[in-house]
Write a protein that binds this DNA or RNA. Sequence first.
DNA 1: ATAAATTTGTTGCTGTGGCAACAGCTTTTT
DNA 2: AAAAAGCTGTTGCCACAGCAACAAATTTAT
Lengths: 220, 220
Amino acid sequence: MITNQDYLYSLRKCYLFEGIGDEQLSDAIKLLNGRIRKVEKDEFIVKLGGSLQNAGLLLKGRIESSFQNESFDQITMHTFSGGYLFGEALVINGAKNSPVQVRAVEDCIVLFIDLERIYTVTDDSPIRSVLVNNLIKSLAKKNLILNQKVRILSQKSLRDRILIYLKTLPKDKDGYVKIPFTQTALAEHLGVNRSALSRELGRMQDEGILISDSKRMKLN
Amino acid sequence: MITNQDYLYSLRKCYLFEGIGDEQLSDAIKLLNGRIRKVEKDEFIVKLGGSLQNAGLLLKGRIESSFQNESFDQITMHTFSGGYLFGEALVINGAKNSPVQVRAVEDCIVLFIDLERIYTVTDDSPIRSVLVNNLIKSLAKKNLILNQKVRILSQKSLRDRILIYLKTLPKDKDGYVKIPFTQTALAEHLGVNRSALSRELGRMQDEGILISDSKRMKLN
DNA sequence: ATAAATTTGTTGCTGTGGCAACAGCTTTTT
DNA sequence: AAAAAGCTGTTGCCACAGCAACAAATTTAT
């Protein structure tokens, strides 16, 4: 039996539960009718064109949302890990034809929840009003994330896509950023050809504007 | 003096007030501390990198949100008219550096509102709970709109961008769609070069897959 | 430890679409 | 009605990045 306690860390990271004390966490999850489910690597939680009944909260593992363009290239929307809420927009819109697919990249543990209970039921439970608040903020934040994606994809040159992407990543003290993907996956994130990406990264190093030792990069 | 009554039609179109009767509309607007302001053509409501204090509800006119890529091309995010709520995501996130600019394309009338009042104040006014519900749905819907934008920008070929865009527009009985932009503006929507767009539209007509008589188009 | 699978660098070829420039139209302004 | 501003079609040029193919390196599976 899997308990909430096992994943307290991920739950705490989730924006939806911000401001809700550890003691009330169980109540909140009960209120949302939370159900834990294992999802195996490479399993699709949402298929392209499919629908999703419930939003999910990722407790463990990594999940990726993506789609294909008309040339059948894979474009990654977002890769996320513990504490991430996904599928809210689909569920709230009652979308029948999902424009994205959602796939487990590793073995995952997901807490599925009935989001509607946050905003349709109208009692004045104090927990609910916190949840409402957090849900609104989550949605607004995801909006900005999507904006960022649009910004990357709007760049004309591959180099600009790389530069913008790198600027979003947090720098460590030496000014390096960690790339959380293989180069192949990075290409899918930036929506570019893999070998073209490799070539451009090489060029940038030749020109001296980029230092790159596998998985770590630094701009000048 | 401008009254709410003057713009009842636009207010009714706004998703935020769905399910709120005409009689209660004034109460709702009072609750949100609504203030009407004229915005002149070409005035910026949000500048790039700036911030926005209040969300706006467009009562009259047309507004466009856009940004520039690193090559200084103008990319249009969204053009909207009466009844549209904008700036929510910026306000809710408290964004200091707006990634987009918002500009009046025509002379506009805007109702600015204090969105926070919807979700921070915690009394159990029945109007508020409707507003909360609608705000959540609005945010989720905007999410899908952004998704659509990402989808267009992820296409490798100009033609695919055009095709996908056309498919989102509503067809009339003859299968024609109305293009609500000049070709120049359409190019900015699709994030492509204006003359390349013109060229490609020409090609498509030559190939017989598109019929186009100024402002109206039809696919085969 | 070995094999299998995946990732990465590299390179020649090629097509698409960006760019600039201009002429002809259309729309807006005065 | 005239002038100004903006939109559209067209064209030659060419760079960027997609593509395919392969070998080398790295990672994962058995």
